[in-house]
Amino acid sequence: MQHCDFVELIATVARRMYMCGAETRLIIQTSERIAAAFGYKAVVIVNSCEISVKLLYCESEDLSKQKECTTFMRIDGHGIDMNRLIFYTHLCQDAEQGIITPEELQEKLEHIPQFPYSRTLLVIAVGIATAAYSAINGGNLAACVTALIAGAVTMTAKELLKKYHLFEMFVFTICGMISTLSSFYIGNCIFELDKYNLAIAMVVSLLILVPGFQFVNGILDLFKGYTAVGATRLINTVMLIASVCLGIMIAFSMLPINNL
C-alpha cells in the first residue's frame, strides 16, 4: 500500500469513529495506534467539521530524511452506533497484534457491521423501558401503561421520520409534540390519571429524546482539553433539548393547561 493510500485509510477510520459517536481522545488514540502498528507515526487532529491526518515516514534508513503525507476529510454526518465503534477499536487491537495487514484493514472497512436490532424490537423495548422508568419515578400502574404506549408511539414516530432523512432538530420537535399529545390523551381520556401520575407519564415518554450521548461526549471532550469539539457537541445538545422543548410547547398550546 502506498503512503498516500495509508494516510487516507487512517483518516477514514478517524472520520468514521467520529461519525458513530466516539469521544475525541478515543478517535485520536485509536487512529494513531493503528498507524503506529504498521510502523508509521501519525498526527491526528479532530475538529467539529473535519479530520486532519499527517503521516510521517522514512523511505530509507536515514532518519533525517523523514517525509510526510497529509490529508483532510470533511465530517458530514453524525450518529450513534456503538456496534461500529467497537468494530473499529477491535480493528486497532488486531493491527497492534499483527493479525491484519493494511490491505486487510482496508477491506474490513468496506464491510462494516450493520445495526444489530430490528426497528420493531426497538419500538417494543422503548415502550417497556419507559414503563420501567415511570415505575422508578413513582408512577402507578396506569401511569406505567400510559408511558408504555406513549413511549412506543414516540419511538415509532422517530423511526418513521428517520426514514425520510429529515433534519434532526425537526425530528426531535415533532417527536416531542407527538409524545406529549399521546401521553396526555392516553393518560387523561383512557386511564383518567391524577395530576402527578399524568406528569410522570408525560415526562417518561420523552425518554428517548434525551440527547445523553452528545452531552456526555461534550463534557468528556471539554475535560480532556478538546474545547472546540466539546463546545460544538454541547451546543448540539442544547439545540436538541430546545427542539424537544419547542415540540412540548406546541403540544401544550393545544392542550387544556389547567389539567396539568
Binding site: 452506533d81 424490537l121 422503548v126 422508568y133
Partner: peptide, 15 residues
C-alpha cells in the same frame, strides 16, 4: 426496574 432503561438505551445506541 432501573436496569431496563439502561439495557434499552444500550440497544438504541447499537451496542
Amino acid at each position: 426496574y432501573s436496569a431496563v432503561p439502561g439495557a434499552v438505551f444500550a440497544m438504541l445506541f447499537g451496542t
